[in-house]
């Protein structure tokens, strides 16, 4: 078991023939991901990486029946691509692209929610179920199948958490990067819910960062609904107020969204907070050995 994706997931790649999409699709196919085709408007009928290319999602749907989409199109076209996938009946959409305008995401988020579609990202590394399928840009070799579910707002920080859980010999059930934008398709809570229901997942690592109140909301949800141990790390403890730290969502504004507030709330709600980035793995071991 795992969450969201496995060997059976039928993946179509939007923006398939672009350089980033090509690089990561190649790696995904090599990993065993069931990529059934791709979409690049104007290149329908061609074959790329041995898979069929379509002009529209509708054609892809009829021909190869995908149920998940991985998006690499440039930011100005992401709204269009996400909506095309959602309206065509794709159940899971992962948007890797960085730099999508926030107002585009307000419209998109409303529509995918109405349609009951799961959107991960944008501006995220994607998701992986080790040993089964990789829909994203993460390095495959640091992952091993195992028992820890990982959710994160940041890419390379996710890899750090993955590496540490691999090094202590636990491995991962699935890893989901929800992205660093102000309006993400899926929240921590959406993914926590899935890990709680997944029998393979024994512990959850939630990697947050400054800005917004997503971690505080998740803390409250964990207290009420999650029975599995949750370990958390919050990045940006040394970030100054009013400065955007790379991610569009990572900013302390009006004294809100500080790491200290988040850590306090998480601790109050029974979450095990790692004191530093380098202690995530040891914290998971410690918590699991107590249970």
């Amino acid at each position: 078991m795992s969450i969201l994706v496995d060997k059976e997931t039928r993946v179509v790649v939007q923006g398939f023939t672009g350089s980033q999409a090509t690089l990561h699709s190649e790696q995904a196919i090599e990993y065993g991901t069931n990529i059934v085709g791709g979409i690049t408007p104007g290149k329908g009928g061609q074959t790329h990486l041995g898979k069929p290319v379509f002009d529209t999602m509708e054609e892809a749907k009829k021909s190869v029946n995908p149920n998940a989409s991985l998006i690499f199109v440039p930011a100005p076209f992401c709204k269009d691509s996400i909506l095309e996938a959602a309206e065509s009946g794709i159940e899971l959409i992962i948007c890797i692209t960085e730099g999508v305008p926030t107002l585009d995401m307000l419209d998109v988020k409303k529509r995918v929610d109405e349609l009951g579609v799961t959107l991960i990202g944008p501006n995220c590394p994607g998701l992986i179920t080790p040993g089964e399928a990789k829909l994203g840009i993460m390095p495959a070799n640091i992952h091993v199948p195992g028992s820890v579910g990982i959710i994160s707002r940041s890419g390379t920080l996710t890899y750090e958490a993955v590496k540490q859980t691999t090094d202590i010999g636990l491995g991962q059930s699935s890893c989901v990067g929800i992205g660093g934008d102000p309006i993400p398709g899926s929240s921590f809570i959406d993914i926590l819910k899935l890990f709680q229901e997944d029998p393979q997942t024994e512990a959850i690592v939630m990697v947050g960062e400054i800005g917004g109140t997503a971690e505080e909301d998740a803390a409250e949800y964990i207290k009420q609904n999650i029975t599995k141990p949750v370990v958390s790390y919050i990045a940006g403890q040394t970030a100054p107020e009013g400065k955007r730290m790379g991610h569009a969502g990572a900013i302390i504004a009006g004294g809100k969204g500080t790491a200290a507030d988040k850590i306090k709330k998480l601790k109050e709600c029974g979450v095990h907070v790692a004191d530093s980035l380098v202690d995530i793995g040891s914290k998971v071991s410690e918590v699991l050995s107590k249970n």
Binding site: S152, R153, S154, G155, T156, L157, T158, Y159, E160, G180, V207, E209, I210, Y233, A235, G236, Q237, T238, A239, K243, M245, G246, H247, A250, A259, D275, S276, L277, V278
Partner: peptide, 23 residues
Amino acid sequence: NGAGLAMGTMDTIKFFGGNPANF
């Protein structure tokens, strides 16, 4: 490389008693 890891690195420096000059 990466905004989250950059913040995490700053925090780690601080954790061991140093002071980051930048993100």
